[in-house]
Simulated assay, not measured.
Amino acid sequence: MTPRTLRRKLENESTTFKHLVLDTRMRVAKEFLVSSDLSTTEIADMLNYHSAPPFFRAFQGYVGCSPKQFRLQNKPQ
């Protein structure tokens, strides 16, 4: 599939490749925060962020709380 065809198909679905990547990263981040003891810096690195601060900002903007707050609120009992 050509890049242009992919853009058109995503446009038809009212999304972008960038949005799909962000959705996937945040879904994986939430899973790691709840089910592992990895640090937020390790999670940021695994998700291909250049450093922890951009990951923190992206997570806060997407989820509405910090990764630490999310982990505490969703800790398994």
Score class of each variant (00 low, 15 high):
I43V: 08
F17D: 09
F55R: 04
F17Q: 07
F17G: 10
V21S: 09
F55T: 06
V21I: 15
Q77P: 15
A29Q: 09
R25M: 09
S14V: 00
P54E: 12
M1T: 07
R4T: 02
V28D: 10
L72Y: 13
S35M: 09
L6R: 04
R25C: 14
R27K: 09
T40M: 08
R4E: 12
T41C: 03
H19Y: 13
N74Q: 08
V63H: 10
R27D: 10
V21E: 15
Q77M: 06
Q60K: 08
P67M: 12
D23T: 05
A58D: 13
G64H: 09
N48D: 14
F59P: 00
F55D: 02
T2N: 13
R8S: 04
C65Y: 01
M46W: 02
P3W: 05
Q60F: 02
R25I: 06
Q60N: 11
G61L: 05
M46V: 00
K30S: 15
A44Q: 07
T41P: 00
R27T: 03
T41N: 08
R7T: 03
P53V: 03
F55L: 04
R71P: 09
T15E: 08
F70C: 01
S35P: 00
Q77C: 00
P67S: 06
H19T: 13
Y49W: 06
P54Q: 06
P53D: 15
P76R: 06
V34Y: 13
R57H: 08
Y62G: 00
F70W: 07
Y49M: 02
P53A: 08
K75R: 15
Q77T: 01
V21G: 00
A29E: 08
S39Q: 02
T16S: 14
L72D: 08
S35N: 11
R4S: 09
F56Y: 12
E31Y: 14
R71M: 13
E13K: 15
P3T: 08
M46P: 00
K75Y: 15
D37K: 12
P3M: 06
T5E: 11
E31V: 01
S39K: 03
F59A: 03
P53T: 05
A44W: 07
T24H: 10
I43H: 08
F56P: 00
H19K: 14
